[in-house]
Nucleic acid binder design. Structure first.
Lengths: 133, 133
DNA sequence: AGCAAACATGACGTTAACGTCATGTTTGGA
DNA sequence: TCCAAACATGACGTTAACGTCATGTTTGCT
């Protein structure tokens, strides 16, 4: 009745495969599931939460390496002033990069709208001349 | 004195390698440079412009395949109503996807800011207790 | 004509983020 | 206790977007 699930349940709920979980473990994105001796691994709800967070961050275009740098601060507080300052710097850097991306995407959006408008005008003209009921 | 440049000049100006140009040609992102018989290829300013545009679109996270679908409309007008309508649909789809991405990034941005604020508060408290000039 | 620099082409290598397969071990239920 | 389902581990495969070599051909200059 505690949060002991095996890899199958975990991956089913997270929508990933066991391969992915093991891969993430090796990269340091997930703490390796506990186990007694050399048997199977058992995971908790936190592992699930981490997997979901990783999914979100991936969606944003972060690489697994990028994610490894920030994932911990979602689940553990680094202790001591030095680590916190380091994390803070990292966060600010990510914020700057994010703003860059948003800006680029907004410019791209304008571009697209301009093109769309152009095509719509063109098609509108034709339909006046030609297809007028 | 016309716009005839060979691949070396082109790639130097565009900041890519010949390999990249040939790769793009094969994918249909760039029209193959003209040539007489079986000699070398010659490119124009438009090729350069296309390369630059491709670079921008890549920055936005579009794959080369995505780019292949839209790159032409930056440089050539598709003729006929059908093609234009098709392109228009494509553009609208890209617009929707772009909006999704922007939204996700903005949510991520808020997340980051929240975390940053949290760390800043923590660090501020310590410096009051401890480091007060 | 001769030659070095630039180009063409093909083949194999690389990184990220897993997929797939083979083989052996654990578990939980009848 | 026995067995099928689930798990563990290692190895090889895959896609995207090129990099890097090796080898042979073209060009531009002297």
């Amino acid at each position: 009745m505690n949060g002991r699930m095996r890899i199958g349940d975990l991956t089913e709920r997270a929508g990933v495969t066991p391969r992915t979980v093991r891969y993430y473990e090796r990269l340091g994105l997930l703490p390796p599931g506990e186990r007694e001796g050399h048997g199977q691994h058992y995971y908790t709800e936190e592992t699930l939460a981490r997997l979901e967070k990783i999914g979100q961050l991936k969606q944003l275009g972060l690489s697994l390496e990028d994610i490894r740098d920030v994932i911990d601060l979602y689940f553990t507080d680094p202790s001591g002033i030095k680590p916190k300052q380091k994390v803070l710097a990292l966060l600010r850097q990510h914020l700057a990069e994010t703003d860059q991306k948003i800006g680029a995407l907004q410019r791209f959006r304008s571009d697209l709208q301009a093109h769309i408008a152009r095509f719509e005008r063109w098609l509108a003209e034709r339909s006046e001349d030609t297809g007028e009921r």
